[in-house]
Write a protein that binds this DNA or RNA. Structure first.
Lengths: 340, 340
DNA sequence: CGGTATCGGGATAACGTTATCTCAATCGGC
DNA sequence: GCCGATTGAGATAACGTTATCCCGATACCG
């Protein structure tokens, strides 16, 4: 018994097969598939049932090749498998626009970033969202010249004029600092990420400016470096000891907040803390963690909007958008200083 | 001044342009691009410099169309933007195999899952990794018949014979239960996810079996349902009150552990807890959270291996692989019962 | 020196779509 | 009853690759 009217064995059915099955011209099948109104009702029906009988699925590779566009956006992010609320907003916004987002991790590795982005370019994705790694983005120059639409998220592409959407890191630090000052703190420490990372550098610089404005000493108050447990704990130890220990700490990102809390729970319970970046565990601690929260949804929506604008008109002037952050007071940042 | 020898304006250069630029035949460019050894050194050089001059990048759409394969794997996961250590292992393993993984979220929505998977099929991805949503996967039947290579991760595709790789949920629950019993607990409660979710159902069932084996009463001891804060807190309240309150709790997944800890911190500090799924915050609590941890790396590696095997030979018999879990004793599960 | 391997490289035909062009048939108007 | 407009559908040419075939030139052997 012949199961189905299959085309050539082992191959997926193609439009030619559908046309043969329906007794109709190739072009007519294409018209039906693309909802072209100029096909008679009876023929549409014949083609439809042929498609169903063969389980025909159009080959997007061929469509995209012919059409010139792929309806696909690439997202090259640091780690897919990390919490990344921005990506969620990105997927949502893209789906609403009828675009497909396909994502891959750069693993914070320049080599991998380049490989991922170039792969997406060779696949002729309509546009790419990128969380850029630190240093050299020279490889992007020819791609951009060839018409790549790119939007950088969270960090700019240094040295290149590229659209980007960032959080307002400076305002975030200033807000956190002012918040702690308003609650009576005068000696505030900052624990930050490696300053080779753009956001870390920006936040640390903003904090230094706050210290200068306040007129306080800076050396023991600011500690930046790689995300390593020992480094962080040593920094905290330094900041919270000596003749003039800090009475409050600002942490530069979610991981640092975690490590700081981890250390506090064994050493202190009277230091105020304000973290940068909101996270699930902010409300797990006691008191709940006060944070400077980024507006993930706004960042994602803005990124997709900018990318679509650039795809629609590559001559659009480059824009750098800064998205406001908000302070979420939850308790940990409202503790008064132990010894004023 | 003419900047670069561009092909047709606005279009990316193609092999034809490179061939013209190098004064060579189209086929020769293809050979150079694909490192075919049969091209003379001088011509290779000419072609190479033409490629560089034009910033030529092969169009993978055309390659893939011609070649029949895309060298691309799709990963349709519940939420890209959630922590998903398995996906990390998947990306790593695929990269090692020279394949590209492109991921998209299904958002735990059957409609979106279907849309994502079908999009990947139309793009003719070589294979797809899927974290399947609950109910109806009928749409997969024609795809599978047409030769789709699919591996289900974390949950099986119910009603279809499809490769899958799962954690050993039953052994995990048994281990957690036995661990608490060994530490003196006799009244152990289970807080689980909605049993319409496969893993939740499997874990709850295993827990019921444990209760039966122990001969204890079950009703007040097992609470499953949707992940909603109020529901969970009410369930905990029930389990920990009355004449015979539980002295220990097993939580069915990471989110439930979080909510349970959140509730405990305001109400109890003497109940033992063992969580299913490891997470960053397991070591943030006091005492540290004892968990049943899945072997994410093994799951990811296995999934990629199975997928590659099936792609290489679609007639491979369907396999269901169960990956062992391990108990990470950290303190919270070793607390003795308050009132034995 | 002629004949035949061998090697390098070009012409041409797919891959599965869509777009352009063409043409046959139907219809309305005068 | 003829003509132009309109509609429906087919033939054919791209899109940018790679694979098959083939041919010209050099080298080697008898």
């Amino acid at each position: 018994m012949q199961e189905k009217p299959r085309a050539r064995k082992g191959r997926r059915p193609t439009m030619v097969d559908v046309a043969r099955e329906a007794g109709v011209a190739l072009r007519t099948v294409s018209r039906v598939v693309n909802d072209d109104a100029t096909v008679g009702a009876e023929l549409v029906e014949r083609v439809r049932s042929a498609i169903a009988a063969l389980d025909y699925r159009p080959d997007e590779r061929a469509r995209h090749l012919r059409l010139g566009v792929t309806g696909t956006l690439g997202a090259a992010v640091r780690q897919l498998s990390h919490v990344n609320p921005v990506l969620r907003a990105v997927e949502r916004a893209a789906r609403a626009a009828g675009l497909m987002v396909l994502a891959a991790s750069t693993e914070d590795d320049e080599k991998i970033e380049r490989h991922v982005v170039e792969s997406m370019c060779r696949r002729r994705f309509d546009g790419i969202l990128l969380e850029p790694i630190g240093a050299d983005h020279g490889y992007l120059v020819p791609e951009l010249a060839a018409g790549l639409s790119l939007v950088a998220v969270d960090r700019p592409v240094l040295g290149l004029e590229v659209d980007c959407v960032l959080s307002d890191n400076v305002a975030g630090i200033e807000t956190a600092f002012a918040h702690l000052v308003a609650h009576g703190h005068r000696r505030i420490a900052y624990i930050g990420d490696d300053e080779r990372i753009y956001t870390a550098q920006e936040r640390a610089t903003a904090f230094r400016a706050c210290l200068r404005a306040q007129g306080g000493p800076a050396d023991a108050m600011i500690h930046t470096g790689p995300i390593e447990r020992d480094r962080i704990h040593r920094a905290l130890e330094t900041a919270l000891s000596g003749p003039a220990p800090a009475t409050a700490v600002i942490t530069g990102n979610a991981t640092l907040s975690v490590e700081t809390v981890r250390w506090f729970r064994d050493h202190h319970d009277d230091v105020a803390i304000v973290g940068f970046d909101d996270s699930e565990l902010a409300t797990l601690l006691r008191p709940d963690l006060t944070v400077v929260a980024q507006d993930d949804a706004a960042i994602g929506d803005t990124a997709i909007t900018m990318l679509r604008t650039r795809i629609a008109d590559p001559s659009t002037p480059v824009r750098k958008v800064t998205v406001p952050v908000t302070l979420q007071a939850r308790g940990s940042g409202e503790t008064p200083p132990k010894r004023p």
